Amino acid sequence: MSEHILKATSRNVAGKGASRRLRRTAAIPAIVYGGNAAPQPIQLEHEKVWLASQNEWFYSSILNLDIDGKVEQVLLRDMQRHPFKQLILHLDFQRVDATHALRAKVPLHFLNQEKSPAGKTSGVVITHELNEVEISCLPKDLPEAIEVDLADLAVGQVVHLSDLKLPPGVELPALKQGKEHDVAVVIAKHAKAEEVESAAPAAAEVPATKAKKDDK
């Protein structure tokens, strides 16, 4: 597990008006909650957080949140973005307890797809039904991503959740809910041939009626 540090400062004023004033100073209002401590309003520098948010680890890793010199381990639980501006409006962080299992969504990294039998077969479409999965583990075991090696993927094969190779200490809560939750992750199948409608044959021209010969 990599170390990712975000610096923040505590704030005493809450409310929409205070949050708007913070944003005008290029800061992001945020909240830290969970554990045995009370929720704590904080603020972070927008530019630094924006750069961090361009990385996959920002959403799926345990973050070391330095609040006024005191470091807490947290997970990002919610991010509010401006509908069209490159602007983060608010962040929610949840405190992490090293002794308790947590649930988090982590991305799937698909490897060796092009080298697989299915990837080398013409006319085969490989679809990724999932791009992330929810896992359960202790904080120390949280992976930034789960690799899915498709080197042996064959035509017609379906890779299910239960086929994923998980790091030690990591579980998939969905699999405990029954076989119907063992959903497909990757499917390799032949592309459906598009039905090409053949042009309808042009109607045969009706031959012109021959003029009747006059009776002699």
Results as ranks from 00 to 15, higher is better:
Gln40His: 11
Lys176His: 08
Asn36Thr: 10
Gln43Thr: 14
Glu45His: 08
Glu114Arg: 15
Arg24His: 12
Gly123Ala: 05
Glu205Ser: 11
Asp78Val: 08
Gly17Asp: 04
Ser53Glu: 04
Val106Trp: 01
Asn64Thr: 12
Ile31Lys: 02
Ala26Leu: 12
Ala184His: 04
Asp215Arg: 15
Pro39Arg: 08
Leu91Val: 07
Leu130Thr: 00
Lys140Pro: 06
Lys85Gly: 07
Glu194Trp: 08
Arg77Ser: 05
Thr9Asn: 13
Ile62Cys: 10
Arg103Cys: 09
Leu166Arg: 02
Asp68Lys: 06
Val186Lys: 00
Gly34Gln: 00
Ser2Leu: 12
His100Lys: 15
Val124Pro: 08
Val125His: 11
His181Ala: 15
Glu56Cys: 11
Ala8Ile: 04
Ala203Leu: 10
Leu89Pro: 01
Gly69Tyr: 07
Trp50Ser: 13
Gly156Met: 07
Cys137Phe: 01
Ala145Ser: 13
His100Thr: 13
Ser60Arg: 00
Asp152Asn: 12
Gln94Cys: 03
Lys105Ala: 13
Asp97Gly: 04
Thr9Ile: 08
Asp214Pro: 15
Gln54Thr: 14
Val183Phe: 06
Asp152Met: 12
Leu89Ala: 09
Pro167Leu: 06
Leu150Gly: 01
Leu161Val: 04
Val183Pro: 05
Ile62Ser: 06
Lys210Glu: 14
